[in-house]
């Protein structure tokens, strides 16, 4: 199992941000993490990434506990991309993407052919090859987001955690990122956990979905089962219904606007 979480709980001061969170992923699985704002999606991702120490429970990657692993060893197994990461404005795209190789080169080792190849591959996969020499200040929000995704990709980790990777992107680039995620999972067996707001994108791309509400796991299973559960309406406090457009296609949530649920 690439990733297993056993009854994780995270406490911020007095607030229980995550309680009894469980997760078990197969190699190459794409896992969607959905839930209202403040439901604990980012907290769950950061805990899996070893950035937050849980009050209880444990995260394991390939059977090894995440907490206690040196950062650089962990970074070879797991890449995590925060929501709106900051970087110096005068840094070039190529230089940022290069940072992702730190896990492999460390303090002293020279960048070898396999490092340069990883950088080139990540730039190419995110469509940034032509922009490699630009500074971050010259990029649009979407290009910046892709540059960060490219940096995470150069880690060439088998587990990829993405916190809302499609926000800021126009619909074309959203699809590009989702396609990239799918390619990584299908062709290279990368397991992906991503927090995502768009329910229909989650339904279409993910193999399994975890639904969070106030730090509590409300659902864990395949998209079709989530559609049948009726939980989307209650957890997000909206009215709508799931429809299927094509035989075997993903269920699509059709939101009814102008109706406030009781």
């Amino acid at each position: 199992m690439p990733v297993t979480c056993s009854s994780l709980s995270v406490v911020y001061g007095r607030r229980q941000a995550l309680s009894d969170f469980r997760l078990s992923m197969a190699p190459g699985e794409i896992r969607g993490l959905i839930g209202p704002n403040g439901s604990g999606k980012s907290t769950a991702l950061q805990t899996v990434a070893g950035l937050i120490r849980p009050a209880a429970g444990q995260v394991e990657i390939d059977g090894t506990a995440v907490h206690g692993l040196p950062r650089r060893v962990l970074a070879q197994k797991l890449a995590y991309l925060p929501q709106h990461p900051a970087a110096p404005e005068d840094m070039t795209v190529e230089h940022l993407v290069r940072q992702g190789r730190f896990a492999h080169v460390g303090l002293f080792r020279r960048y070898g052919p396999e490092d340069e190849e990883a950088i080139r591959w990540a730039l190419d996969g995110t469509g940034l090859t032509a922009l490699a020499g630009r500074s971050l200040r010259e990029l649009s929000g979407g290009e910046r987001q892709r540059a960060w995704i490219a940096a995470a990709l150069t880690q060439q980790a088998k587990v990829l955690l993405l916190d809302e990777p499609t926000t800021f992107l126009d619909i074309g680039h959203q699809v590009e990122v989702l396609e990239l995620v799918r390619r990584l999972s299908r062709e290279q067996g990368v397991s992906v956990i991503m927090a995502i707001h768009d329910i229909n994108q989650a339904m279409a791309v993910c193999d399994a979905i975890s639904l969070l509400q106030n730090g509590v796991l409300k659902f864990d299973g395949p998209p079709a089962a989530l559609a049948e559960s009726g939980l989307i309406e209650t957890v997000f406090r909206v009215r709508g219904r799931f429809v299927t457009f094509a035989e075997g296609g993903p269920p699509h949530f059709d939101l009814s606007l102008g109706v406030i649920p009781a």
Binding site: L81, H95, F102, A152
Partner: peptide
């Protein structure tokens, strides 16, 4: 030199790139 490059980034990103922040 390399830690300095990473320290210019957001802490969470630098740590996930493998830096003992």
């Amino acid at each position: 030199l390399r830690p300095l490059d990473l320290l210019g980034l957001e802490a969470a990103a630098a740590r996930s790139f493998g830096l003992s922040y």
